[in-house]
C-alpha cells in the first residue's frame, strides 16, 4: 500500500483509516472475529477442564500439591513452542493451536477457582455444615458464591493471556489478528504492522475491561450489603491481587 509519508505514525493512521482494510474476509472485523473464535473455543475447553478440578481440590483439599506443581510446570511451557510443535506434529489448523492455547489457559483458571474456594472463611463453611447442609450444598451455596469474584478473576487472567497469545497462531496458520503482523513483516508494510499491533492491544484492553465489569457484578447479593466503603487502594484489594499475580500476558 502507498503511504503519503515515511513517518510510521502517519502510515499507521492511513492503514487504520483505509476502508479497504475494514471489509472482506481478510479485513479487520473478520480477523477480530477469528481471533475471538480462538479465544472462545480455548476458554470453553480450559474451563471445562479446570473448573471442576479446581472445585474438587478446593472443596476437599485433596491433590493440592499435585495441582500446584502441575500448574507450575504448565506455566513454564513456552506457548509459542507448543503452538509450533503441535502444528508440525498434527497439522497446521485450528485445533492443534487451540490445544496449545488450552495449556496456557488452564493454570490461571485452575488456580483462580482453587484460590476462590480456599479464600472462603472456614468458620462460614463449618457453620453451614453444622446447619446440616450436604457437601454439595456447601460447595454450591456457600463456597462458590463467596469465592466467585476470585474465581472470575482467574478466568479473567486466563482470557487476557489467551487474547494476547492467540496472536502467535497466525505464524502457524493465517488466522486471527497476528496475520497483520506476519504480513506487515513479510511485505515490509509498516502501517499494517503497527496498525495490527494497535488493534491487538485495543482488543486486549477492551476484553479485559469487560471481564473487570463482570467480576465487579459477580458479588453475591447477600454479601453486597456488607461491603464497607473502601479506599482507592483497598477497593482493588484481594481479588485483584490474586488476579494480577496470575502471571503474564504472552
Amino acid at each position: 500500500m502507498d503511504y503519503s509519508s515515511s513517518n510510521l505514525f502517519v502510515q499507521m493512521g492511513e492503514w487504520l483509516s483505509d476502508p479497504v482494510n475494514w471489509s472482506g474476509s481478510r479485513g479487520i472485523p473478520m480477523r477480530v472475529l477469528e481471533h475471538l473464535g480462538y479465544v472462545g473455543l480455548t476458554m470453553l475447553i480450559a474451563c471445562a477442564i479446570a473448573i471442576p478440578l479446581g472445585l474438587f481440590v478446593g472443596h476437599t483439599g485433596r491433590g493440592r500439591v499435585l495441582i500446584v506443581s502441575g500448574i507450575g510446570i504448565l506455566r513454564a511451557l513456552p506457548t509459542l513452542g507448543m503452538v509450533f510443535l503441535f502444528a508440525l506434529l498434527f497439522y497446521r489448523g485450528v485445533l492443534p493451536s487451540v490445544w496449545a492455547l488450552v495449556l496456557l489457559a488452564v493454570p490461571p483458571v485452575l488456580s483462580g477457582v482453587y484460590a476462590g474456594i480456599s479464600s472462603v472463611n472456614r468458620t462460614v463453611v463449618d457453620a453451614a455444615r453444622s446447619m446440616g447442609l450436604t457437601e454439595r450444598q456447601i460447595l454450591f451455596r456457600v463456597e462458590v458464591p463467596n469465592g466467585l469474584q476470585v474465581m472470575i478473576g482467574g478466568v479473567r487472567a486466563g482470557i487476557l493471556q489467551v487474547v494476547a497469545t492467540a496472536t502467535v497462531v497466525a505464524y502457524a496458520k493465517a488466522d486471527g489478528l497476528g496475520v497483520f503482523l506476519v504480513e506487515g513483516t513479510q511485505i515490509n508494510d509498516n502501517g499494517r504492522l503497527f496498525g495490527g499491533a494497535v488493534i491487538i492491544a485495543v482488543l486486549a484492553i477492551a476484553v479485559d475491561g469487560l471481564m473487570a465489569l463482570i467480576q465487579k457484578f459477580a458479588i453475591s447479593p447477600g454479601l453486597r450489603a456488607q461491603q464497607p466503603p473502601a479506599g482507592p487502594l483497598k477497593e482493588s484489594g484481594r481479588q485483584e491481587a490474586v488476579a494480577s499475580a496470575q502471571g503474564g500476558t504472552t
Binding site: A164, A197, V198, A201, A204, T249
Partner: peptide, 13 residues
Amino acid sequence: SLLYTIPSLAMFV
C-alpha cells in the same frame, strides 16, 4: 495494570 494488559508482541513491535 493498563500497561500490563497490552500483549507482549504488540509491545515488542
